[in-house]
Amino acid sequence: MVISGFLAGALGAGLLRHLPRGANVCWLWCAVPTAVLWFVAWALAPPHWLPVPLLLAWLGVLLVATDLRHRRLPDALTLPAYPVIGLTLWLCGADLWRALAGCVLFGGFHLLVRLLVPSAMGGGDVKLAGSLGAVLATVSWLALPVGALLASTITLFVGLWWRLDGVPHGPGLLAATWLVAVSAG
């Protein structure tokens, strides 16, 4: 599983370079974290649910690397995440109506925050939140507020060492959702 994760992360870094606005990140920044997260998911998640944390780890590492390096979450990854996550949830036997409700609730909450306080988060965070809300709601309804609180806490900690203007919220969203998903087993 470690080798598969390493290769998936390295291939993901190559994919980032070919995006419309190209994200140039070191391939090791994607390969090593993906390998570690895949190993942890493989060790903790039940077999029927394993594709969800594996997908979240791969997508999450690519998006976090891009967000930290270029200060953006590319549409070329956030928008296709909706059907890919939906398909993965369906293959894992998830209730798709529940996932859709979580998508609308979590995405809508982040959109509301963005509309009320535009400096609080970027548009990419809002686009990403819906697909992650689908995963969280599939785990449980309680996972939605837990995920939001955990994401805010992680973002707060990132802000302690992040010295540029504005703190990226994408890493917090992705890490929180992955943690909830991997512990769902």
Rank of each mutant, 00 (worst) to 15 (best):
M1I: 07
V2Q: 07
I3A: 14
L7Y: 08
L7E: 07
L11S: 11
L15N: 05
L16H: 11
R17H: 15
R21D: 14
C26G: 11
A31R: 07
V32D: 09
P33I: 03
F39K: 11
V40E: 08
W42Q: 14
A45K: 07
A45C: 10
P46K: 14
W58P: 03
L62F: 08
L63D: 00
A65G: 11
D67F: 02
R71S: 12
P74H: 00
T78D: 02
P80F: 01
L87T: 09
L89N: 01
A94H: 07
R98I: 11
A99T: 05
A99C: 05
C103R: 00
L105T: 12
F106P: 02
F109C: 12
L112N: 05
V113S: 00
L115V: 09
L116G: 13
A120R: 01
G123V: 06
D125M: 06
D125Y: 01
K127C: 03
K127F: 05
S131C: 08
S131N: 02
A134M: 11
L136M: 10
V139L: 09
W141F: 09
P145Y: 10
P145D: 07
A148F: 11
L149Y: 09
L149G: 15
L149W: 13
T153Q: 07
R163V: 11
P168N: 04
H169C: 10
T177H: 09
A181K: 08
V182A: 07
S183K: 08
S183M: 13
S183E: 11
A184Y: 13
